[in-house]
Structures are given as C-alpha cells and as structure tokens.
Design a binder for these strands. Sequence first.
DNA 1: CTTCTCGGATAACGGCACTATCCAATCAGC
DNA 2: GCTGATTGGATAGTGCCGTTATCCGAGAAG
Lengths: 214, 214
Amino acid sequence: MRLAELSERSGVSTATIKYYLREGLLPAGRQINATTAEYDEEHLRRLRLVRAMIQVGRVPVAKVRDVLGHVDDDSLPRTIRLGAALWALPQVPEPDEDDEYVQAAHLEVDKLLDQLGWENAKQLITISPAYRSLVVAVAAFRRIGYTFGAELLAPYAELMYRTAVLDLDNMEAYPSEAERIEFAILGVILNEPVKQALHRLAQEEETARRYGFE
Amino acid sequence: MRLAELSERSGVSTATIKYYLREGLLPAGRQINATTAEYDEEHLRRLRLVRAMIQVGRVPVAKVRDVLGHVDDDSLPRTIRLGAALWALPQVPEPDEDDEYVQAAHLEVDKLLDQLGWENAKQLITISPAYRSLVVAVAAFRRIGYTFGAELLAPYAELMYRTAVLDLDNMEAYPSEAERIEFAILGVILNEPVKQALHRLAQEEETARRYGFE
DNA sequence: CTTCTCGGATAACGGCACTATCCAATCAGC
DNA sequence: GCTGATTGGATAGTGCCGTTATCCGAGAAG
C-alpha cells in the first residue's frame, strides 16, 4: 500500500506519517521508484503501536524511538530487551541528592526493599529509573508534610508485585518470542493507563460505597 | 516573607512564582505597600503542593488551578470535592464512539463492571473520566491485535480495588478534614507515580526472578 | 541621596507534536 | 502521448505550554 492508504487505514494524517518516518519511528517503505514507496501490514502494525504509545501511553516521540530501537534489536537477549524498553520510558527529573527529603526518601525506599526481600531490585537501585521515580515521589510527599514510609508503602508494593506476576503470566501465554516482546512493551506502556484507570474507577467505587454520592 | 525568600525556601524561581500568581495557582500575598507583598507558611505549603502536582504528577497548570479551586471550595461536601479533584485530572483524548475497537472496548469494560459488582461505578460511566480512559486504553490494545478482555482485566481490577481500599484507609487516618482532603488529592496525584514506580520495580524484580539477569 | 531591590506587566523563549507549503517525478485516464 | 492529479521528500511554520528575561517605576537601605 502507499502512503495515502496507510494514512487512511491507520487514521493518521500523511503529514504525521511523514513526520514519524523522518523521526525514525517507522521504517521507510520499499522504494518503488523516485516518487513512490510501498508499505505493508508490518508498517501499519508498527504505526498503530507508535500511535498507542504516544496517545495512550503519553510517551514522547524521542522515547518511542529509543524503545522501538530495543524492540528491533534481535541481538539482545530477551530480559535485556525488556529492561531496555522499561528503562527507555519517560522519567521523572533526576532527584537532587543534596535535598534532605530525597535522602530521607532513599532510606525509606531501601528499608522497604529490605522488608520485602526484593533482592534483585536492590541490585538495580543505582541504575533503575523506577527506583529513582519512587524516591522522587516519596520525597515530594515528605516535602509537603506527609510521611509515606516503608510501613505504608509495603502493602502497596505487595499488591503491585502481584500485578507484576499477572503481567508476566499474561506475557508468557503468547506463543512467539516476537509477540511476547511486543506484549511486554505494551504491558509496560499501555498497561499502566489501564491499571491507572482501573485504580481510579476502584477509588470511585469505594468512595461511593463508604460515603454514598452525597 | 517576601517573594525572594519564598523563592529560596521553595527552590522555585521568582519568575515562575510570579507566573503561578498570575495563573491563579497561588493566592496573592498580603500587600504591604505598592512594591512589597508578604507571604506566609501557607503560601510556601501551597507552592510546594503546586510544584509536586506539576513536576511529579505531570498535571498541566490549568488542571492544577481547577483542582485547587475544588480543594478550596469549603461549600462542597467532601465526596464531591474528592470527585471534583479526581475528575479535574488530565484525561486521555475523548474516545471516538464510531470506532469499532472503542465499541468493543465498551462492551468489555461494561462486562467487567458487571462481573465485579461495581454498581456505583456503573452509574458513573457516562461521566467518569476514569471509565473513558479505560475504554481508550483497552481499545488501543485491541487495535494492535491483543485482546484485553474482561477475564484478563478482572484480576487486575481486584488488585486495584484493594489498592483503593488502602488509599481510603490511609486518608481516614488523618484527623482534620482539611488534611484528609489534601491527602486525598495527593493520593490521586502523587500516589499514582508512587504505585507506577512500585509496579515497575516489581516487574523488574519478578523478571529477574524468572529469567535472571542474563 | 543614590544605589539596590522589590513586585507587576509584558514579551520572548524553547521544546514538542504536528501541519502546511513547495516541488519535481510519475501515474491514470482519456 | 498528453494532461492533470497524486506521490513522497524537504523545509518552514503553527500552536500550545511551562518558563524566563526585560522593563519599569516605587520603596528600602546604607
């Protein structure tokens, strides 16, 4: 198919597709001649993935490029590809290590990991963006005057761990390696909006149950 | 304290504070004379809240204004204030109701709510942004070729419901109404980054447990 | 008195996701 | 084979948004 058809079937304007091509989010089509390029179902699929990441996952274009680079890198073993995709995702600004709240948050999060026995996560704390995000968020709570210590975090972490087990179970249900990788990426990028929405729905439900509508 | 000190103690530049004042995120200081205004601890606290929402919660400035408007509106009953804060948060673009994937997602999500017995949430589906976000995300999965039906969503929803119970329990632990409201706002805005980070950490932990580091 | 700082108003900036405009090559319909 | 529409590439422009820089005249400080 040609650009116009790719645009029609994906619902993305040709101008935007050209932009994605330029930015390297979409591989170039097979060049038929100087003015025509041919795209296939793979392009359509990739384009839909890109759109989902940008619109639903709110992933910036540059990050999408990074993530896709890892997805396409067949030379990497699976866990590395998974990790690379996770880590290429948008992050909270770097924590200011001199800030007293950040330091307190570090202690609290480290205590939490000890309590939970997350030995693998502990090994990653120097490099994991998830760890840094957690520290930044916990520090923000403290700065406003609310403590969000290990004892409050632990039950959440327990639930999130069970969520992660579900994620990986679902991923393993797919037969091909390629699908598993793509689903894992989606599981990080699109799953979070799903869980966030479920969470808010659950909050609405429980609030209504406790206090009614008025 | 004056602008310069407010800036120093909060770590926010005077130019940005002026911008927040202009945008109505921060109430004006007490005017001492034509060129001096006096700010107090409440201003500092509010400023930190605003910063946390913008930087950690990634809430757009306009939304912060809306949320704070509800926080400050003493005439509203608590559940409404809570709901108003929840609903003022950034949303996914409106789902296109003509889209076949969106329609399928609607059916799937409705089925899920029935299965779970979330009767209160069902009543809110016409207006709840959380419901719409969920539909958009589920539709995005389907569009790429992965089904994320009620039977896969249900265990996640169960875990999220337990998370919401924790949220409300934590909120109720605060003695004053004002603190509870503020904590509830934070619980929606800052808690989500916390949970998201815990989730990713948990994914990293479980991935490492299943597959090791190589 | 004069130099410094204050806060208000306004304009400018930089990043990002697109989008509009040109253009020459080429395809489709007659 | 001619002609008008379409194609894809290059480039510049747009709109939004969070932030910052520049002026300015009115006090405060030494």
